[in-house]
């Protein structure tokens, strides 16, 4: 009896009867299909490729298991690329963090009535972030130009150098030139996040610390830094991920040269994949990169969790 009227109600409503859960899956479906097809499938294919030797030119395509990875271990160029990548990452991320922190602290001190100064600072600071990396690489390539670039001229005019330095062609300078460019481009991002973090620190804490006799440095060390730790770690995670994968900045600026002195893992992988067409070995390189990035960010996350537990 009740069952019949139940089905009647269903019929009467006359629309497709889906539970909320079913609607949910339906809504998530397009995203899932797209990501599976365009991202997950290629990722899987890359992992699979990394277990094969594929050299289309010679018609070679065979399963080799972990041989590519073993080959990596003995590949001097791989280790050099690793060193370059880590050097680039460590230098640029720490510089971005320090500089970004400095910017954020300065901007947090801005106080001219309506906050006009801060608005202007935001406008200026967002520009390097918004510029395409490729464009910023070209901008800096021009600044680094040895004969009539602005940098050499300014340094010479200030009496700091004897004259012409070929920044991008000198194996010692080239990687640092790339770091400077990367720092210029991404410091704003770090500064914006840190500034937003600073704004959330309750002002009463500083007042209380001043009453307790803490100086500026003590306030920074005991209040600002601990409270900002989560944001600092998030900046670290984001920036490290990006720095390890760095491609366009260095690729456009130096192309990996001179020699292989600025060849990061991405560039080595790119060359292996698209210049020597070793799909298997190139994929193994890329996977190694992913592992490196994942291990580092896992480390950061553990740090973050420990920090949250300690302060919570």
């Amino acid at each position: 009896m009740t069952d019949r009227s139940f089905t009647e109600i269903k019929k009467r409503s006359g629309t497709i009867h889906l539970s909320e859960r079913a609607w949910g899956y339906l809504f998530a479906c397009p995203a899932f299909i797209l990501v599976s097809l365009i991202a997950l499938a290629p990722i899987n294919a890359a992992l699979w490729l990394s277990l094969r030797q594929q050299l289309p030119i010679f018609g070679i395509d065979e399963f080799v298991g972990a041989r590519n990875y073993l080959q990596l271990l003995g590949d001097e160029r791989f280790w050099a690329a690793c060193r370059t990548t880590l050097y680039f990452t460590a230098l640029s991320v720490s510089a971005e963090l320090l500089l970004g922190f400095g910017f954020a602290l300065l901007l947090n001190r801005l106080s001219d009535g309506a906050g006009r100064g801060l608005r202007w600072a935001h406008v200026m600071i967002i520009l390097p972030w918004a510029i395409p990396t490729v464009v910023s690489a070209q901008i800096w390539a021009w600044l680094y130009q040895p004969d009539f670039g602005l940098l050499n001229y300014l340094l010479y005019a200030a009496g700091m150098t004897g004259g012409r330095i070929d920044w991008l062609a000198d194996p010692d300078w080239a990687i640092h030139a790339a770091v400077v460019m990367d720092v210029w481009k991404t410091t704003p991002f770090a500064a914006l996040l840190l500034l937003a973090g600073l704004k959330t620190v309750p002002q009463e804490l500083y007042a209380a610390a001043r009453v307790d006799g803490a100086g500026t440095w003590e306030q920074f060390r005991r209040i600002t830094l601990p409270l900002l730790m989560p944001v600092v770690l998030i900046v670290l995670v984001f920036r490290t991920m990006d720095a390890i994968r760095v491609f366009d900045a260095v690729f456009v600026l130096t192309g990996g040269g001179p020699g292989n002195s600025t060849e990061t893992l991405s560039i080595y992988a790119y060359k292996t994949l698209f210049q020597t067409l070793q799909f298997g070995y190139g994929s193994a390189l890329a996977t190694a990169m992913f592992v490196l990035a994942a291990v580092l960010s896992l480390l950061y996350l553990l740090l973050l969790r420990r920090h949250v537990q300690e302060s919570g």
């Binding site: 991202a39 290629p42 994949l273 992913f290």
Partner: peptide, 11 residues
């Protein structure tokens, strides 16, 4: 997180 360079060739 996956490096774009890794998916380039399958893609």
């Amino acid at each position: 997180m996956f490096p774009p360079i890794a998916v380039i060739s399958p893609l």
